[in-house]
């Protein structure tokens, strides 16, 4: 987890404002995963994590955007994606990351599950200001 991520070949930014934007985010991330030559299992894990985070951005964050692209660090290549909203924020991060905990009617496994599906997971949130979740999945 040390060293800075170096963007490789530009970042794509997409809005997450409607239901079908979540599908578009999955397509974007899938395309990057293919470009990065992630294995099929890793592609599926990353796409699923992106789907979870995008939906949280939409449902809990009240909409926002994703920025995604390829990154390198120390000779490795990966896919990075950052989900950003200026919604209500998360008052209790540990609680939100508890398996099965939901403030809505979900399974409460999106945030915690997404963390297990990726290699790097950073959550920044401030009550009343918004939430940013950044993830990276490295090619093996």
């Amino acid at each position: 987890m040390t060293g800075t991520l170096v963007p490789e070949g530009g970042t794509t930014r997409q809005p997450i404002e409607r239901n079908d934007d979540v599908v578009r985010v999955r397509h974007l991330v899938r395309a990057l995963a293919l470009q990065c030559r992630l294995s099929l299992v890793d592609q599926t894990k990353l796409v699923t994590a992106a789907s979870e985070l995008a939906r949280n951005t939409l449902v809990y964050g009240g909409g926002g955007s994703v920025s995604a692209g390829l990154v390198t660090r120390g000779g490795r290549t990966g896919v990075a994606a950052s989900f950003e909203d200026s919604g209500p924020g998360i008052p209790d991060i540990d609680l939100a990351l508890t398996d099965g905990w939901t403030s809505g009617g979900g399974l409460g496994l999106g945030l915690s599950g997404a963390r297990r599906l990726v290699d790097e997971f950073h959550l920044e949130t401030e009550v009343g200001r918004g939430t940013t979740v950044s993830v990276v999945k490295w090619a093996r």
Partner: peptide
């Protein structure tokens, strides 16, 4: 399929 099964397990479903 295998990749779906592994993802479902990691999600904790």
């Amino acid at each position: 399929r295998p990749q779906i099964a592994q993802t479902i397990v990691a999600l904790g479903i």
